[in-house]
Amino acid sequence: MDTQTATPLDDFVRLRPRLFGIAYRMLGVRADAEDIVQEAWLRWQNGGSLEARTPEAWLVTVVTRLSIDRLRGALTERERYVGPWLPEPLVEDTAASPESALEAAGDLSTAFLLMLERLAPEERAVFLLHQVFDFDYAEVAATVGKTEAACRKVLQRARERVRAERPRFAVNRELHLELLGRFVQAARSADPAQVQALLAADATFTGDGGGKVKTTVRQVVGADRVGRLVAGIERKWSNADTRHDIITVNGAPGVLTWRNGMPDAITSIHIEDGRIAAIYVVRNPDKLGGLAGLRA
C-alpha cells in the first residue's frame, strides 16, 4: 500500500492484527481484547489520526495503556474466580477477524499466557513489547510512559519472575499433532496406564469451569494422578454422545470435545522433551462462546 495515499482507516485495518495480538496477550480474554481495540479505533477516529506522528506508535501506545488499566481491574476479579483461571481459547477455524488475522509472531500458547500471569501489568506490557513484539527500549519507554532506564529495570525484574533465558514455547506441529492424537486415543481407552505413558512424571492437569460447570477445583499434579483423572473423565462420559475433534487452539493443535451435540471443552497440551507436561481444559461456557455457531 502506498503510505502517501493511505487513509486513517487503511492504517487501522493494517495494524489491527498487531493491536489485537497485544491486547489479547495482555488480558487473555477475547472480548476484552476486542473492546480495547474498538476503543482505540474510536480514539483514532476522534482526532488520534491527526495528532499521530506514526500510526503504529500512537495506536500501540493507546492499546497498551488501556490494556494495563483493564488488567489491573481484571486481576481483582480473578481473585474471586472459582477454581483455576485459564485464558480464553482462540480457535482458529471458527474465529472471525481480528482473531483469524492474529499475528503469528511471538508466543500465544496457553502455557506462555499463564507464565505471563506472574507479572504485574506494567511488567507484562514491557515484557511483551520487547520480547515478543521486538520493540526496542526507546519504543517501549515511549509506549508505557517511562524512561529507557526504568524499562530496562522492569524488564530485568520481569525476566527474573518468569525465569530468564527460558526458551520460547515453540510448537513443533508434527510432534504436537502426533502426541495429541495418541493422547486422545489413550483417553478414549479409559485406561490410566495408557494415558500415563504419554505424560511427564510431574505432569499437571488444570481445569477451568468458572464455577459454572464441573471440573477440578485445584491443579492436579503427577503422572499417576493425571492419568487416573483423564481416564475417569472418559469413563464417566462413556454412555454419552461424545466426539473429540482436533482443531487449532492458540496457534497449536488442540481438542474440541462435543457432548450430546454441544461444545463441552477445549483441551490444550504443553509438551516438554517429547512428553505431555501440562494439560489445560477449558469448560467455562463463557469462554466457549466463540464456538456457538458450530454444530456437531
Rank of each mutant, 00 (worst) to 15 (best):
H130P: 07
M262Q: 12
L108S: 02
L59P: 01
F12K: 03
T242W: 00
G227M: 09
L66A: 13
Y280L: 03
Y280D: 07
A57S: 14
W41N: 06
R25C: 06
K153P: 00
V220F: 09
R161I: 05
A252P: 01
R157Y: 06
S268P: 00
A138G: 15
R259M: 13
A193G: 08
D134W: 14
A125H: 08
P55H: 09
R159W: 10
E56Y: 01
A150F: 02
C151H: 04
F169D: 13
T242F: 01
V217T: 11
L175K: 10
I233K: 03
R78A: 11
A170F: 09
F183Q: 03
L86D: 04
S109T: 15
G145P: 02
T257L: 15
P84I: 10
L291M: 10
A142D: 15
Q219W: 01
Q4P: 00
G211H: 04
V82W: 03
E56Q: 12
A23Y: 07
L129Q: 05
V91H: 11
A164S: 13
L27A: 09
I246M: 13
R53C: 00
S100C: 06
I246P: 00
I68K: 04
V221F: 02
L75A: 11
A187C: 02
A223E: 08
G47V: 01
W58F: 08
N260Y: 03
T143I: 08
A190S: 09
V63N: 00
S97R: 13
R168L: 08
G227Q: 02
A193V: 04
Q38L: 14
M26S: 04
G222K: 07
L86T: 08
Q196E: 15
K146P: 01
R159C: 09
R14A: 14
S109A: 10
A40I: 00
T143P: 02
V282T: 15
D32R: 15
F127R: 09
A120C: 00
E77D: 10
F205D: 10
A120I: 01
D32C: 03
R182P: 01
T110V: 13
D32H: 14
D93N: 14
L90M: 14
D273K: 11
P55D: 06
S189L: 01
R43N: 10
